[in-house]
């Protein structure tokens, strides 16, 4: 049995982006408004961590976000494909090393996402 607040958060976290977009008072089309690429929790974590650091290694991100190699790889690749993060592969001696940094478009996407969340809170308060 969880607390009511926990249950509410659990239900809310499964809510589709479309509803979040509608409540924010903007377009009801989520693709045009709420960035679903960033909305996913691991990807939001990657982008947030990189916003506070110039670069982070794959190992740093994995430890920080407490996730698996496969999961982090998958989500980092999606952000890389979208141009939100830049990946750099080098060798540290004989060991391969992967570093990530946030691109300018990734930083703008995070700022838009933050604006959107704040707008959502304001709209919810106004109702």
């Amino acid at each position: 049995m969880g607390s009511p607040a926990r249950k509410e958060r659990a239900v809310a976290s499964r809510r589709p982006a479309r509803e979040l977009a509608a409540v924010s008072g903007r377009s009801a089309e989520p693709a045009a408004d709420l960035d679903r690429l960033i909305h996913e929790r691991v990807r939001l974590g990657i982008v947030s961590a990189l916003a506070a650091n110039e670069t982070l290694s794959f190992r740093d991100l994995k430890d920080l976000l407490r996730t698996t190699d496969g999961n982090l790889s998958l989500h980092a690749r999606k952000l890389e494909d979208a141009g939100y993060v830049v990946c750099r592969k080098t060798f540290d001696g004989r060991m391969p090393r992967t570093d990530y940094r946030l691109s300018a478009s990734g930083r703008r996407a995070l700022e838009r996402y933050l604006d959107h969340m704040e707008a959502l809170i304001r709209a919810a308060r106004a109702r």
Binding site: E8, G45, L110, M117
Partner: peptide, 15 residues
Amino acid sequence: IPALRTVAIDDLRYI
């Protein structure tokens, strides 16, 4: 609304 507001607040806190 309270649930959606919770999501937004939770997201901002997580960031």
